[in-house]
Design a protein around this nucleic acid. Sequence first.
DNA 1: CGCCTTGTTGGCAGTCACTGACACAATTCC
DNA 2: GGAATTGTGTCAGTGACTGCCAACAAGGCG
Lengths: 221, 221
Amino acid sequence: MTANKAETADIPYPGRVSQPALRERRRQQTEREICDAALDLFERRGVDQTTVDDIAAAAGVSARTFFRYFATKEAAALVSHVDLDDRVEQMLDDLAPGRPLLAQLEDMWGEILTALDDGRSDAGRLVLRVRRLMLAEPALRQAAVSIDAQRLDAFVARATAALDLDDDLGTRVTVQAAGVAVRVAMDRWAEARDSGDRIDLLATYAAACRHLHTMTAPGHP
Amino acid sequence: MTANKAETADIPYPGRVSQPALRERRRQQTEREICDAALDLFERRGVDQTTVDDIAAAAGVSARTFFRYFATKEAAALVSHVDLDDRVEQMLDDLAPGRPLLAQLEDMWGEILTALDDGRSDAGRLVLRVRRLMLAEPALRQAAVSIDAQRLDAFVARATAALDLDDDLGTRVTVQAAGVAVRVAMDRWAEARDSGDRIDLLATYAAACRHLHTMTAPGHP
DNA sequence: CGCCTTGTTGGCAGTCACTGACACAATTCC
DNA sequence: GGAATTGTGTCAGTGACTGCCAACAAGGCG
């Protein structure tokens, strides 16, 4: 006991520390509550009929606190798509210079979309809600597109560095093109679900990738 | 003389009418003045250090009038890239179902970029100014990306209709991918010019298109 | 030339997103 | 337990954007 105490006091043991994580847990909980409230209100009243005060009140915080968690109203609904970042990091670590970049990107996205389990997992349900909202709400769509672009730009920079290239033009084109396939697939998916069709996300993504490949084929209409 | 007078009074002759266009000319002039003022102030002070009141004052109108011309501060600097629309319309009219869509899109964009004359024409200079600003101003970049996305979506809808397709997934992918090549090329172009390099816009665009084609080639690193 | 309709403008008031500064309370450190 | 750190609420302020109304200019018409 005393030994443990001394140990934890010395070095913050990962998984063993329970006290210093209290703040962190509270923070995550608050973030989640704000996000839930925002999503809920956006769905019911629409984005422009929802004020930040509304969201903050529904989440039980002040408006000032809201802005300590999210920079804009829209960002609250577009909270990062969960463990996406982990997979991206891993992909950058595993980058193989010999293999086509596009193939590696498609594998990565394929795995990320697989984790959504066609909207059956918690993460998948959340993403589906958000993508549906985006169809009807230009403000959300605009914010999402912008965040997306920033993310892809950052990814390009890191991938170019990892591959040790002196010209990133090809990387930019490839990463953005792969991103197009994902975006188009998710859009189509959300649209179909919105009108009752139960199309499969992964199959749609595969179709989008196929189009990306065949569009550059020599004799293609 | 009297005959002419009667004629113009009867039917508004296109090209012959000079009076009723007075309002229209004033409107375009005001729009241009606002746009110039915005661009100038953005370049000198930065976007967030420029208020709508500043722009309006510099253009000689009230803030209220500013918003009758542009929905947002950023939109004033992103005024439509001139005769782009004409070329797009023409391309939609000439759409050949038998020829690869990507090739037709690349032709269209190639012509539009050619008209910019590598930044030597008036339109080219304007575009270069705006793209340079976008590099340093996230707010402008965000607005531009968003407008771009809307335009491409509209284009997809019209192209799909023109081609009489029942599935627009391929059209979406192809149009967006072609858009990626253009955006990447213009970004690179503006960046290079910003740091003193005089790279050629059209050559950069051609390189981007090449990457778009080779990235899907079988044995490509 | 007057008259009427219509489009354009400016001023004003109001809402709302977002920010900085400060005081206060909850955690964490020691 | 006390001190340093960190999260939160309140308040005041800026600035984007909108609706409303009155003034005014432009074009059509007798």
